[in-house]
């Protein structure tokens, strides 16, 4: 028996064992909060996906926001820069809507979203004439932008609940944008700041070649 050869084989076997140990451990401890029994799976006759049906593909992994220190700021071309706590945002009228998120990876989820309208927040800040682009920034450094008209005309929502339960950290707690009719990369999570500008802006994936409009009826490749 050659000891060197046996050691090499054992090292390879150990590597395989470690890989399986990692996979089993990751499977048993996914890190995601279990949705529990309160999650609704049907709304007004429409079947809903589970909040576990998302694939985690954020740029820096799930963000765990300390809600006691959390602020949502609205600035840029506004009459008054506004800073809201989580409770401040939730004190606005809330809306519910079933919307499907389509990821560029090929999967999709249909969820009952509940949140506040961005319009309501913008109306409080007052939008200056000339503002035409709205940029959303996230806690992980992610950003994306839209035309202001899109946000205004479609009553786009900042969601804080999904399928009747509070949005978990890995889904974007405290707020995820429900960017209807846009590819999933426009559905920014962990929103911390909203800026209005008169310039064009390309967000994280848009700078890397994705379409800036992110329209679902067109290719996501720029």
């Amino acid at each position: 028996m050659r000891p060197g050869r046996m050691v090499a084989v054992l090292i390879l076997l150990l590597m395989v064992l470690l890989a399986f140990a990692y996979a089993i451990s990751a499977l048993l401890n996914p890190g995601a909060g279990a949705p529990g029994t309160d999650e609704v799976r049907e709304y007004q006759g429409q079947k809903l996906s589970s909040i576990d049906d998302f694939r985690e593909n954020s740029i820096k992994g799930p963000q765990h926001i300390d809600i006691t220190r959390y602020n949502l700021t609205i600035n840029g071309l506004v009459d008054h820069t506004k800073t809201y706590s989580y409770a401040d945002v939730l004190s606005h009228p809330n809306y519910r809507k079933v919307v499907t998120l389509n990821c560029v990876e090929g999967w999709s989820v249909t969820i009952l979203w509940e949140g506040v309208r961005v319009n309501d927040l913008l109306n409080e800040s007052g939008v200056k004439p000339g503002a035409r682009t709205i940029i959303f920034y996230a806690a992980d450094g992610y950003s994306t932008s839209f035309s202001l008209d899109y946000i205004r005309d479609n009553n786009i929502m900042l969601a804080y609940r999904m399928n009747n339960i509070t949005m978990p950290p890995e889904r974007g707690y405290p707020f995820q944008l429900v960017a209807e009719n846009k590819w999933g990369y426009k559905w920014i999570k962990w929103v911390t700041r909203i800026e209005l500008t008169d310039q064009d802006y390309r967000g994280y994936w848009e700078q890397r070649g994705y379409s800036n409009s992110g329209d679902l009826n067109a290719s996501f490749l720029g």
Partner: peptide
């Protein structure tokens, strides 16, 4: 999670 066993097994 399967990428890890896949790569390890393929390497082995």
């Amino acid at each position: 999670v399967l990428w890890a066993p896949f790569i390890a097994l393929l390497t082995a």
